[in-house]
């Protein structure tokens, strides 16, 4: 392991960490503006031009607020739960190729921290660990609403995980590899996977909402009880870490969906790179759009949907793909 590789990896890790922590903050600004636009409001307007500095104001508030640990909680677990959500979101980013490789001063840079053979499995697996944050936070809080939210986190988890796995299985069978770079290259040669796997695309997209806990499946945080579920007892930066984790996850899954189904960055030109960023922006926007347009489902409806509708569809899709590939 030579030094150049080591330094390159460290720089990439730091860049991803900084960029996406900042993006998580700016993402909240986008979310509030877009929701406001769709609900005929103005959204944040007072801090800076068009409320752009609202992000900084929120940051100052989160960092300087007192970090309260209530006396009844199981404090080690209570303290570590937000860290799990934020850390696993960024760990998952290690196997995502954000841009095509480019050359800086004669040195070729691959904007992926580790191109492992099992990229897609790794990303989905680590993202799944992220749900331990809400679960542990809710269970350690010694609060009934938080405990309810933890129970829902477990329900969400056992519902969507099977669907994501089976939905990605059909594209994996076509590509014959689990590396996200191979997915991209396959689609650069053979056209986008969405044209041959539209069903898998839609299933994965639906499951992505459950994976990130966004609105149709935002039942982890009991919004309808006007309480923040697992975050009820949290304050200051610990609550902020949950937030950063959620938004970073949204950004990362918005990268993963186009890379698997929509051609990724294509043949690796500058145009392809911008196309990937554009697709990512669309999927991120779609998360916010659904939040404005749709109500939450109940936990039992989510489980019904995942186990009785989406999972059989995914299995049928896998079987049909297998037959088509065999003959």
């Amino acid at each position: 392991m030579d030094n150049a590789y080591l330094i390159e990896t460290i720089i990439k890790v730091v860049v991803i960490l900084l960029v996406f922590s900042a993006l998580a903050g700016i993402g909240t600004y986008f979310e509030r503006k877009i929701l406001a636009f769709m609900q005929r409001r103005l959204g944040p307007m007072n801090v800076g031009p068009y409320g752009l500095l609202q992000v900084a104001a929120d940051g100052i508030k989160l960092f300087t607020k007192e970090d309260i640990i209530p006396s009844g909680v199981v404090s080690p677990i209570f303290k570590i739960a937000p860290v799990i959500t934020a850390a696993t979101a960024f760990m998952a980013a290690a196997a995502i190729p954000f841009l095509p490789s480019f050359t800086v001063f004669g040195y070729e840079v691959h904007p992926i921290v580790a191109d492992i053979d099992i990229g897609i499995l790794y990303v989905l697996g680590i993202m799944a660990i992220g749900l331990f944050g809400p679960l542990l936070g809710g269970m350690a809080s010694a609060n009934k609403f938080a405990l309810l939210s933890a129970a829902r986190a477990a329900a969400v988890f056992i519902s969507y995980e099977v669907v994501t796995g089976l939905a990605t299985l059909a594209p994996i069978m076509m590509v014959g590899s689990l590396s996200l770079i191979d997915f991209n290259n396959y689609q650069a040669d053979n056209g986008w996977i969405i044209w041959s796997q539209p069903l898998a695309f839609i299933l994965f997209w639906i499951a992505a909402f459950a994976e990130t806990g966004r609105t149709p499946f935002h039942l982890i945080a009991n919004d309808h009880e006007i309480i923040d579920g697992f975050g009820t007892e949290y304050s200051g930066m610990r609550w902020g870490l949950f937030f950063i984790g959620e938004y970073a996850n949204m950004f990362f899954i918005s990268f993963v969906i186009p890379i698997i189904f929509l051609g990724g960055f294509g043949d690796g030109t500058v145009l392809g790179a911008f196309a990937l960023l554009g697709k990512m922006a669309f999927f991120f926007f779609f998360f916010l759009w659904t939040r404005a347009a749709w109500p939450d489902v109940r936990p039992d409806q989510l489980m019904w949907l995942c186990w009785k509708v989406l999972m059989p569809l995914a299995v049928i899709n896998v079987v049909i793909t297998g037959f088509v590939m065999m003959f």
């Binding site: 499995l121 697996g125 680590i126 799944a128 331990f132 477990a154 988890f157 056992i158 995980e161």
Partner: peptide
């Protein structure tokens, strides 16, 4: 290992 055991322990 990660995927299976996160799910199993979640149950």
């Amino acid at each position: 290992q990660i995927i299976v055991y996160t799910g199993a322990v979640m149950a």
